[in-house]
């Protein structure tokens, strides 16, 4: 096997056994280094919720979130709309961009993040993630985003994403558990919501106060770990809790 195939195999083997965030970080960090990059970052956006696993300096990532940089980070903004893997930084850096964005890049450079490759990932239901390999080099070789290189980096990004989803985001919940988790009333209220009924409608249908409907929906949302009632309905349907 060639080096690059070896690196990919090693990554695939290692990520199978990764069970927590630290292990995921180690696996991707090692893979990034074998591919010639000092750092990696995986950013996942679920509505307003952002999750980051990275080997970036902690001083940089905490500053990043404190200042809400994910709102203006040109790499994140591009990952949201781009379909294919792309490189950034160096001469490829857009000369345009706001003053804040130029300042942002200058700041990132001081943390050793100068250029990189980003794999944009579209999850189902509007979720977006970006897997980035970064370096302090001035520029990314164009062959790093073409051919076999591109295929490997893209698969490393996607694999990282689905393994994190499977293991850290509780994509698979034991159905028996979930069922006993929700009360009869919670299932009822969610079921009607899934049918397009409003809180006021449900209050009439179930003969309880609207306030109580909201109470049950909120409880269900919390139990299923959903960010919104809409997501809660989707999770409940997916797990077959509303039948």
């Amino acid at each position: 096997m060639k080096l690059i195939e070896n690196t990919f195999q090693e990554f695939v083997d290692a990520i199978q056994t990764a069970g927590d965030e630290n292990a995921f970080e180690r696996v991707a960090s090692r893979c990034a280094q074998r591919l010639g990059f000092q750092r990696f970052a995986y950013l996942r956006l679920d509505g307003d919720r952002a999750t980051l696993i990275s080997s970036y300096p902690k001083s940089w990532t905490s500053r990043y979130f404190d200042l809400g940089y994910q709102q203006l980070d040109p790499v994140v903004l591009r990952a949201k709309v781009e379909r294919d893997i792309f490189s950034w930084g160096g001469v490829a850096r857009a000369p345009a961009g706001s003053r804040e964005q130029r300042h942002f890049f200058d700041e990132a450079t001081t943390f050793g993040i100068r250029s990189g490759i980003t794999v944009p990932i579209r999850g189902g239901f509007g979720r977006v993630a970006a897997f980035t390999l970064a370096t302090s080099d001035r520029e990314i070789d164009s062959d790093r985003t073409a051919g076999e290189w591109k295929d490997i980096v893209q698969q490393v990004g996607l694999y990282f994403h689905v393994h994190v989803s499977a293991k850290l985001e509780a994509a698979f919940a034991a159905p028996q558990q979930g069922e006993s988790e929700l009360t009869q009333r919670e299932r009822q209220c969610l079921g009607w919501t899934a049918q397009g009924k409003t809180v006021a409608d449900i209050a009439v249908l179930v003969a309880i106060a609207p306030r109580t409907v909201v109470f049950h929906l909120e409880n269900a949302r919390r139990k299923l770990g959903a960010a919104s009632i809409a997501q809660c309905v989707a999770v409940a349907l997916r797990r077959g809790l509303l039948v």
Binding site: D84, V119, I121, R122, G124, F125, Y159, V162, K167, F172
Partner: peptide, 29 residues
């Protein structure tokens, strides 16, 4: 993974995880 994207995303328009021209989902993990 490319074939799967063409079939399940482009043709059937399922709600699956994609990047570029590939499709990989949680069950692949």
């Amino acid at each position: 993974y490319r074939l799967r994207r063409r079939i399940f995303k482009d043709r059937l328009d399922w709600s699956v995880s994609i990047s570029g021209d590939m499709e990989i989902d949680v069950y692949d993990a």
